[in-house]
């Protein structure tokens, strides 16, 4: 075999790699159409070595289509795409040899046991049987699945399956880890456990590209992200930059009786930079939530419930698209 694998703790950048560029993903005017449907409408993206980059957007925003093009499994319709400095059109296998892919739906093989899923997968990358056994045990440890090594995949919980899928994606010690909706369908505890694993990988220098429609996930994990909507990029930056640029520091949420929000919005409009009317509440975008709230009370308005909080990416998305992330 022409190569050997370092352990998961080794630095990801290897000397002598021809594509030793810091541009891990480079896209210009990237498009994907399915028949007459335009899933991705000309996006520009740059992901640099060692960063955690996110595509944030609702279902159907074109995130998964973009990821599948980056993973070199779905042909580019138009535009330029370079992954690790190579063209997926011509160098698909070479690119895929250096990627780890965690798809949206678990694609574990239920006919194989937990450890077998890793062993068989490592062989696809040309690892020797001995190397893949050692690597599998290391990754089972990392994914906290050592005592489940011989279990059937179907007997694992959702969180365990996802951890196993991520472990499988790491079998070739990839330079880029692609995660499509990594925590969708997981309970809060399993999500936090997974975030912890991803955070550790990031600290080890693995470049992470992920899609999510959870703003808290994007805020937790991403150094930089793009907000996607209807196949296009609506904004780009770090979570903090995006919030600063597109929202206020704080938000005061007011709940009144059903059906009153539209009418009451006019009475508080001048108290905030911006007021959003949702079916169940009013959101007042302001620098100082408590002060705004006091002014609301000062006008004799008595909301049934109030909440003052910091702005989040959810607010950014609402501002940019007029819709919320999760339907």
């Amino acid at each position: 075999m022409p190569y050997e694998y370092p352990s998961v703790t080794a630095a990801p950048q290897s000397p002598g790699v021809p594509a030793a560029t810091d541009s891990m993903v480079h896209a210009r005017g990237l498009r994907k159409t399915f028949g007459s449907f335009e899933a991705v409408r000309g996006i520009d993206v740059d992901v640099h070595r060692g960063e955690a980059f996110g595509f944030l957007g609702p279902n159907g925003a074109g995130k998964s289509s973009t990821m599948r093009m980056i993973a070199a499994v779905s042909p580019v319709t138009a535009g330029t795409l370079r992954v690790l400095g190579m063209d997926p059109q011509t160098d698909g296998p070479l690119i895929r040899a250096r990627l780890g892919v965690c798809p949206q739906e678990d694609s574990l093989d239920p006919d194989l046991r937990v450890r077998e899923n890793l062993l068989v997968y490592g062989r696809y990358f040309g690892l020797s049987r001995r190397a893949v056994r050692a690597r599998a045990d290391e990754l089972l440890e990392f994914a906290q699945l050592t005592d489940k090594a011989k279990a059937k995949v179907d007997d694992l919980s959702g969180g365990m399956k996802r951890r196993l899928t991520i472990a499988r994606a790491l079998i070739n010690d990839p330079e880029i880890l692609l995660l499509d909706e990594p925590t969708t369908g997981l309970d809060p505890q399993a999500r936090h456990s997974l975030w912890d694993k991803l955070f550790r990988l990031k600290e080890q220098g693995v470049t992470i590209v992920l899609t999510t429609h959870y703003m808290d996930e994007a805020e937790q994990l991403c150094d930089r992200l793009v907000v996607m909507d209807k196949g296009a990029i609506a904004a780009e930056g770090s979570p903090l930059e995006l919030i600063r640029e597109h929202s206020t520091r704080e938000v005061a949420e007011l709940r009144f009786g059903v059906g009153q929000h539209e009418a009451l919005a006019a009475r508080v409009a001048d108290l905030a930079d911006r007021v959003e009317v949702l079916p169940d509440r009013l959101m007042l975008y302001t620098e100082h939530g408590e002060e705004t709230l006091a002014q609301v009370h000062g006008r004799g308005l008595r909301p049934l419930a109030v909440l003052v909080r910091r702005s989040t990416l959810e607010d950014v998305f609402l501002k940019l698209t007029g819709r919320s992330l999760v339907d």
């Binding site: 050997e4 790699v17 296998p93 068989v120 062989r123 040309g126 070739n172 010690d173 330079e175």
Partner: peptide, 24 residues
């Protein structure tokens, strides 16, 4: 070292296909 090449030529092709042996 990371992977920069894959086995090439007719035998390279076969050797990559052979990687599915353990699965089957």
């Amino acid at each position: 070292m990371a992977v920069t090449t894959l086995p090439s030529g007719p035998f390279g092709w076969l050797s990559i296909t052979w990687r599915l042996l353990d699965y089957w």
